[in-house]
């Protein structure tokens, strides 16, 4: 049966890339062979692979945004999140699997930014797969040495009175930044606040959207 995704939109709202009709590459040939061998050997099933893809597709920055918005509106939850971010996000109902998460809170005097210099460690079970730039040589190489220049490329300029704290995700922990709550959002409900929280603001390369333009 021919696969045809052309009538469907991907979770990002774009049409699926029509990879099915591109010339077969060596590495795609390997993926198909490995997948079939794993199914034949009883390691997995086609259904399990499809379900895992669906699970990853369902993870996206809106999950992190909901966590951040609740931390902004619920002081007890904020404390729990800073104490044990894995437990707090699970308690909210997010399926983060075995991921060990640390939440980093931005304040008037501290700005956190996350990088993985050795590979591309990312809180994928909360935010979904990382953006391509996160995996780039430039981001991995420069963020630990000149974070303010990197942030400036993302349009984030911080005052000298703010300390930048870079977190190199080298081992078993993953990190999510809790950006500072934007001014002018007093009295907002968590669902509305969540619409201001961008993916980049939870990596530390962005700030939440301003309530004026949201």
């Amino acid at each position: 049966m021919p696969h045809d995704h052309h009538d469907h939109l991907s979770p990002s709202g774009h049409p699926y890339r029509p990879d099915d009709d591109h010339p077969l590459t060596y590495w795609q040939q390997m993926e198909i062979a490995v997948r079939e061998l794993l199914i034949e050997k009883g390691v997995t099933t086609a259904q399990e692979i499809a379900a895992q893809i669906d699970t990853m597709d369902a993870r996206n920055p809106s999950h992190g945004a909901a966590v951040v918005a609740r931390a902004w509106t619920d002081p007890d939850f904020r404390d729990d999140l800073l104490q044990d971010a894995s437990a707090a996000t699970r308690e909210m109902g997010f399926d983060i699997g075995p991921m060990r998460l640390i939440a980093l809170e931005n304040t008037d005097t501290e700005h956190n930014v996350v990088v993985c210099t050795l590979c591309s460690c990312y809180p994928r079970n909360l935010l979904g797969l990382p953006p391509d730039w996160y995996k780039s040589r430039a981001y991995r190489a420069r963020t630990v040495k000149e974070p303010r220049k990197v942030l400036a490329e993302f349009g984030v300029t911080l005052p000298d009175t703010t300390t930048v704290r870079v977190h190199d995700s080298t081992a078993d922990m993953r990190y999510v930044v809790i950006p500072a709550r934007p001014a002018g959002t007093e009295g907002w409900h968590a669902d509305d606040l969540a619409t201001l929280v961008t993916r980049d603001s939870m990596i530390g390369t962005g700030l939440p959207k301003s309530p004026d333009i949201a």
Partner: peptide
């Protein structure tokens, strides 16, 4: 596994962009 915090000054010396900014990393 220890999260160790370093100042930019202690890592990069005179090359440090902002000496008081920090880097945290997990080290076994």
């Amino acid at each position: 596994l220890m999260r160790v915090r370093f100042t930019m000054a202690d890592i990069w010396g005179a090359d440090a962009d902002r000496p008081r900014d920090t880097i945290d990393a997990e080290i076994y």
